[in-house]
Simulated scan of single mutants.
Amino acid sequence: MTVEEWLRGKLQGIGNQLTLNELQVAVDATGDIDDERFMAISLTDEKDDYRGNKIFLDSLWYALSELLSAMSTATNTGQKSEKRGNRQITTGGISYTKSDRDRYLNRANEIRKNLGLAPKDMETDREGMSDYTYMRNRPNTCTKGGWR
């Protein structure tokens, strides 16, 4: 079983809707962490080749925690549309509720705790981007110049 198959299997029901890029970002995080307890892994690595290797297994679980953390900030899995023959087929994505996102973050933090890492707090990320379009073309009312 490859790392990709393992990650998809851990996310039953939605694992197959995740793109390779989303999985790759989570796996790349294992090479980015500056901790000797983890090693860089690849989506194509065979899990069975590393049987009994604690560093590999911890890295695998770390990648899953990174994927779950990323999913805790998502709102849905999007839609996919493709043409098959003379038909257009659209596969609808799954929408995540706040409780789904909280569950993903809690699961990620539980994994991080088991690995001896600090939990992630995503509260600031959950609010999304701020919309400042109302400030466009607004007259400068500040007497000192600049925005206030």
Results as ranks from 00 to 15, higher is better:
K83M: 11
M71R: 04
L43K: 06
Q88V: 12
G92E: 15
F56L: 05
D121I: 05
S99P: 03
R87N: 09
G92D: 14
E46S: 14
E66D: 05
R101T: 06
D100Q: 01
I94T: 15
S69D: 06
T97C: 02
R103Q: 14
F56D: 08
D45K: 00
K98M: 10
Y62W: 05
S130I: 14
K54S: 14
G31T: 04
T44K: 12
D32T: 12
T133C: 05
Y96A: 05
R138M: 15
L43H: 06
I94E: 09
S59H: 03
L117K: 05
T75G: 09
T97Q: 02
D34L: 14
N109R: 00
S95Q: 10
L117P: 04
R84Q: 12
G128Y: 02
R107T: 12
K113T: 14
R103W: 05
L57P: 08
I89L: 12
R51V: 11
G93E: 02
Y104Q: 07
P119C: 01
N114G: 08
T91Y: 08
G52E: 01
S95L: 11
A70P: 03
N140M: 13
T73L: 08
T133D: 14
S72D: 00
Q79F: 13
I111S: 00
T44Y: 11
R101W: 03
E110M: 06
G85D: 06
T90M: 08
G31S: 04
W61K: 14
L67M: 03
A40C: 12
A63P: 01
L68T: 02
L64G: 02
R87T: 08
L64N: 01
D102P: 07
N76V: 04
S59I: 00
D48H: 05
R87C: 07
G85E: 06
N137D: 13
M129V: 13
A74P: 01
Y62G: 03
D131N: 15
S72Q: 03
E110K: 10
K120E: 02
Q79R: 15
D125G: 08
A108G: 00
S72A: 14
I41F: 02
T90I: 13
A108R: 01
K113H: 10
R136N: 12
N76K: 07
F56V: 08
D121N: 15
T44M: 10
I55A: 11
R138P: 00
S72P: 02
Q88W: 10
N106Q: 13
D102R: 14
R112N: 03
E123R: 11
R112E: 01
N109L: 00
L115I: 02
R136I: 12
M135S: 13
M122T: 12
E66F: 03
T75C: 05
K83Q: 12
W61V: 08
G93R: 08
D100S: 07
M135L: 15
D100P: 04
N53A: 07
I111F: 00
K120W: 04
E36S: 13
T90K: 13
L60S: 04
I111G: 03
S99W: 02
K47Q: 11
L43W: 04
M39C: 13
T75D: 12
Y50D: 07
N140E: 15
D32C: 08
D35V: 04
L68S: 03
L60V: 01
R87Y: 10
D121S: 05
G31D: 00
R37V: 05
Y96W: 11
S95W: 09
T133E: 15
S81C: 08
